[in-house]
């Protein structure tokens, strides 16, 4: 049975390849910075469980210093020119979509077959990640054969895209780790206490509004609705909305969580959704995706307050 550890081995090998190719890239003046950065990521995937907590901490410190001191450049492996791409596009036609679309098909098949079809190829708890890894390998193979691309192109083109994302690629994982430190220090409880002790919530609508806006606001600060939910629900949702006003717990929790998601759309701390795409799409403004989302997030947040008020009581 395929376990998550196999996926980590694959990821480690891929990042190790990025590191080696970066080191050999004479066109990148900061090639050693790139090699070291992706090399550390490879080390984390390959040997993270054997490094110990302090070892991993030092590794993270290394990543942050390389990025923070500006030692990370952008490799430019040889790729096809825009003209070549246009003529290749005409030659291959709709075949070009096959590898890209085989990816979601394999992911969906893997997830569905494991969850409902009794497939025992992979650890059911990690079916999504393992299916994604399998699909990535299969789709790459399909692309190489169908589009007759050079054998090294997955690694070189992958490295090109990886350098486009750059340090932002590691930000989501770093923020998850920061969330753990926040949890140890009790940051969430403290903010929850501040909110509940300074805002009077004797009216039902006020309490609903404070809970929903608090979920969103707290998510903006923590970068994650999952971190906000236990704090705001223990502070306001449970004692006031459910126990005092007799609200339906299912409605309150479900819509409360979705109010948090409105916050996720508005914060740079939700880096994988908001900052990584901006880097990946090569947008000059790092916050362009957030700016595109705010006009949807704010009215939706108000709609959540209305929905909760209307359906929970």
């Amino acid at each position: 049975m395929i376990q998550l550890s196999a996926v980590y081995l694959l990821a480690g090998a891929l990042f190790a390849a990025f590191a080696v190719l970066s080191a050999l890239d004479r066109n990148n003046t900061k090639r050693l910075g790139n090699a070291l950065f992706w090399g550390l990521v490879a080390l984390s995937f390959l040997a993270g469980d054997r490094l110990g907590d302090l070892g991993n901490g030092v590794l993270v410190l290394g990543l942050a210093l390389i990025a923070g001191l500006g030692l990370l450049g952008r490799g430019a492996p040889a790729t096809t020119s825009p003209e070549e791409r246009r003529s290749l596009a005409d030659r291959f036609g709709e075949t070009l979509f096959v590898p890209a679309l085989s990816l979601p098909v394999v992911v969906a098949a893997g997830v569905l077959a494991t969850k409902y079809g009794g497939l025992t190829l992979m650890d059911p708890k990690q079916a999504t990640l393992i299916s994604l890894a399998l699909a990535a390998v299969i789709a790459t193979g399909v692309g190489l054969v169908l589009l007759r691309q050079p054998l090294m192109s997955p690694l070189q083109e992958g490295r090109r895209l990886m350098d486009t994302v750059g340090w932002a690629a590691l930000l989501p994982q770093m923020l998850a780790a920061l969330g753990a430190v926040f949890a140890i220090a009790g940051v969430g409880e403290l903010i929850g206490q501040l909110v509940t002790s300074y805002i009077p919530m004797d009216a039902r609508l006020t309490a609903v509004a404070v809970y929903c806006l608090g979920m969103a606001g707290f998510t903006v600060i923590m970068g994650n609705a999952f971190a906000a939910f236990p704090v705001m629900t223990a502070g306001i949702g449970l004692p006031i909305l459910i126990r005092q006003f007799g609200g339906d717990p299912a409605v309150i929790c479900a819509i409360g969580m979705l109010s948090g998601f409105c916050g996720t759309l508005m914060t740079p701390l939700a880096a994988n959704f908001n900052l990584v795409p901006a880097a990946l799409l090569e947008l000059p403004d790092r916050y362009a995706v957030i700016k595109a989302q705010i006009p949807t997030a704010l009215p939706l947040l108000i709609a959540n307050v209305v929905l909760m008020y209307a359906f929970a009581f």
Binding site: L14, S87, A89, P99
Partner: peptide
């Protein structure tokens, strides 16, 4: 990021 290689290959071929 395991999907980057295939994304890069199809990009190279003009997707």
């Amino acid at each position: 990021y395991l999907v980057l290689p295939v994304a890069g290959v199809v990009e190279r071929a003009g997707l």
